[in-house]
Amino acid sequence: EQEIHYLAYYDPLTQLPNRRLLVDRLQKALAESVRRSRCGAVLMLDLDNFKTLNETQGHERGDMLLRQVAQRLCGCVQGEDTVARHGGDEFVVVLEDLGQSLEGAAARAEEMGQKILAAMRHPFLLEGEPRHTTLSMGVT
């Protein structure tokens, strides 16, 4: 029963919440935001050129990269925030309780975006070889 629950709500590769759990957490975060008059943000992240890596160097290396990206993203956020794997090479970060001011929340979301970009600039080690990757990000 526990394994079925885990597989229903978590990505087995990265151990992050999957799309189903992400939707649930987004709904809860939105309801809490409205109830408490607080702002939040959603960051959509997509690894650039992931398909090329996956197809030319193999799915094993692609999986290694996805796991390392997940670890770095988790290292960037606070405990109440959510990092989820939306699917493929797409990740979502849900930032909660960024304050009451839209301007302040936007500034804090931008800071988090910059922190994530800085974390991704360092090379990833795939079977001992350094590999740089970039990502595209959208924030709302």
Rank of each mutant, 00 (worst) to 15 (best):
L117S: 10
E96P: 00
E60G: 09
L73I: 11
Q15M: 05
V42I: 15
I4L: 15
I116D: 08
F50H: 09
D46P: 11
A8C: 06
A107G: 06
E110S: 15
A106Q: 15
A29I: 04
Q15D: 14
D81L: 08
M44Q: 10
R61T: 04
L16P: 01
R19S: 06
F124P: 03
Q27R: 15
G87T: 06
L16A: 06
H122K: 14
E60D: 12
L45M: 11
G88C: 10
R38V: 12
G138L: 07
T52A: 13
Q57G: 01
E90I: 05
L73G: 05
L16Y: 03
P130S: 01
G113C: 13
L43M: 14
V139E: 00
H86E: 05
R67H: 02
M64T: 03
L7M: 12
E90K: 06
D48N: 15
G62F: 04
L7I: 01
I4F: 06
I4N: 05
E55F: 00
E60Y: 02
A106Y: 07
E32I: 03
V34Q: 12
Q27V: 05
N49I: 00
D89C: 04
P123F: 07
A84W: 05
S101L: 11
K51R: 12
C76P: 03
R20F: 08
D63P: 00
R19Y: 06
E3V: 05
L65V: 10
E55M: 13
E80F: 06
Q78S: 12
L53I: 14
L21N: 01
A84F: 06
Q71P: 03
L125N: 07
M64E: 13
L21P: 00
V83T: 07
L26P: 01
G79I: 02
T56K: 13
C74L: 14
L126K: 05
T14L: 03
E55I: 03
H132A: 04
R67Y: 02
M64I: 01
S101H: 10
I116L: 14
Q68Y: 09
M44A: 11
M64G: 00
R36F: 15
T140Q: 04
F91I: 10
E129T: 14
G58C: 11
G62M: 07
D89T: 02
H86M: 14
R36W: 14
I4K: 09
R25E: 10
V42N: 03
V94T: 08
E90L: 09
P123E: 08
R61F: 01
L125W: 14
L21G: 01
G62S: 08
H59G: 04
E90Q: 13
V77M: 09
A118R: 13
L26R: 06
G87Q: 10
R131Y: 15
K51L: 08
F50Q: 08
L95K: 10
S37Q: 15
A29L: 09
D89A: 14
T14F: 02
D63W: 04
M137N: 06
V139N: 00
G79F: 02
